[in-house]
Design a protein around this nucleic acid. Structure first.
Length: 378
RNA sequence: GGGGAUGUGGCACAGCGGCAACUGCGGCGGACUGUAAAUCCGCUCCCUCUGGGUUCCCUGGUUCGAGUCCAGGCAUCCCCA
């Protein structure tokens, strides 16, 4: 733990494992539970930082792999670090690029010492990372929270493969911890272990033993498994085994239902590309479930996306008919407005969850959500 | 008036003897979970649909077989008068 970062738990729900807290960082306080919009290449596609702030965004994600390729971590550092570079002056978290090790699959080679990427999405050259090099890059980028380099095994996966991912991730966690020197950056370890609770616990135990991380990421979920499979190991891992005094970050999750259930297990932080990606594809979140605004049935619909939503889009007079038009015509404003709505939707969902936790009514909040028509749709 | 070109599914195009017909657009629907994603995947003539029926401007013809070849229409476009 660093002097720059403290995590205060301000309320615990009596009926569930949910808790509400505040994570203090050098660039501001983050109320938890929180959803973090993803701005991989130092931009949440289509949205101004000021817009993000007005939607209630407290912290953004950016990606080490992508930024190391373009424009390069040295360039970002030269421009004063990520906050100045992208003109977002609130907290930022950089993902290590561990997820790219997983998603770039065939283009990545793993060794004990690190990873070798074929940078297919850029110039096709090879990039080699050790945990130390990864830390060097993340320190140049200068986010408030940085993640250890890890390996995410995917699902389904052979137990031996998952075991190996845990071993590698553990080894790399230790090396990242030793290599990271900026105490104004909080380093999070990442728990791996697939759907196997015993491997998860092994991973967690190693992280706790080898370092004093500021928080813990939980990686390797939402990679193809069902919600039931996911929560079977995630639930006990979080609620019974993870240290209570540090933030818990469920990486890459997710959809509204997973967020609500995750909070119930005791998760504090989430991030996901889903709201922004689906927005660009024409899909909006709503209390009724997913809405594909491309659908012909909205072409003459004068209502807002979601009657119950108080986002600038839903209260701003933008009709379903207009959104339908923008999306069909591939006008960029369509993706922008839907991104605003979807991000607000998740931020607001977490803000309401937080209020319920503070009020001691999260159990009711959770079951109300699970009984709602939206729950089945996400 | 003379010369040249072209007519194919909502649109644009391909097709040069075996075709329910390439491709793109459009239309309809779906997927998207630490962003190789403003991407990707289906379907898109009709029907009683693991089969059947009608198609490629029209009418005849040649052929086992014609969107494809021949003849005659009709229509459109371009050039010269």
């Amino acid at each position: 733990m660093s002097a720059y970062f403290t995590f205060d738990i301000i309320a615990e729900d009596p009926a569930t494992h949910a808790r509400a807290g505040v994570l203090h960082t050098p660039h501001g306080d983050i109320p938890t539970p929180i959803f973090m919009p993803v701005g991989t290449k130092a931009t949440v596609k289509g949205l101004l930082p000021s817009t993000l702030a007005s939607l209630g965004t407290k912290i953004l994600l950016a990606n080490t792999y992508h930024l190391s390729q373009r424009p390069g971590s040295e360039t970002v550092a030269e421009m004063g670090g990520l906050h100045d570079f992208m003109q977002w002056h609130g907290p930022i978290l950089t993902d290590s690029g561990g997820f790219q090790v997983f998603s770039l699959g065939d283009y990545v080679k793993l060794t004990d010492d690190g990873v070798r990427f074929r940078t297919v999405d850029y110039d096709g050259s090879y990039a080699t990372w050790t945990p130390e090099e990864n830390m060097r890059i993340q320190q140049l980028l200068g986010a408030d929270i940085i993640m250890q380099l890890d390996q995410c095994p995917g699902y389904p996966a052979e137990r031996s493969f998952v075991e190996r991912a845990v071993e590698l991730s553990s080894m790399w966690a230790e090396r990242c911890w030793k290599a990271h020197t900026r105490d104004d950056q909080a380093l999070f370890g990442i728990v791996q272990g697939g759907m196997h609770l015993d491997l998860r616990l092994r991973s967690l135990a190693h992280l706790e033993a080898c370092a004093d991380f500021c928080g813990y990421g939980i990686g390797g979920y939402s990679v193809g498994e069902s919600h039931d499979v996911m929560f079977e190991s995630l639930g006990p891992l979080v609620s019974e085994h993870m240290p209570t005094g540090k933030p818990r970050y469920l990486m890459g999750v997710g959809n509204p239902t997973t967020l609500v259930r995750g909070v119930g297990c005791g998760i504090d932080m989430f991030d996901c590309v889903l709201p922004t990606r689906t927005a660009r594809m024409g899909t909006a979140f709503s209390h009724e479930g997913r809405m594909n605004l491309k659908n012909a049935r909205y072409a003459h619909d004068a209502g807002p996306i979601d009657e119950r939503c108080s986002c600038p889009v839903c209260t701003g007079g933008y009709t379903r008919a207009y959104l339908n038009h923008l999306v069909r015509q591939k006008e960029m404003l369509g993706g922008i407005l839907l991104s605003m709505h979807n991000i607000f939707f998740l931020l607001d969902l977490m803000a309401r969850a937080r209020r319920a936790i503070i009020d001691g009514t999260y159990g009711a909040f959770l079951s109300a959500w699970m009984d709602s028509p939206a729950a089945a749709d996400f």
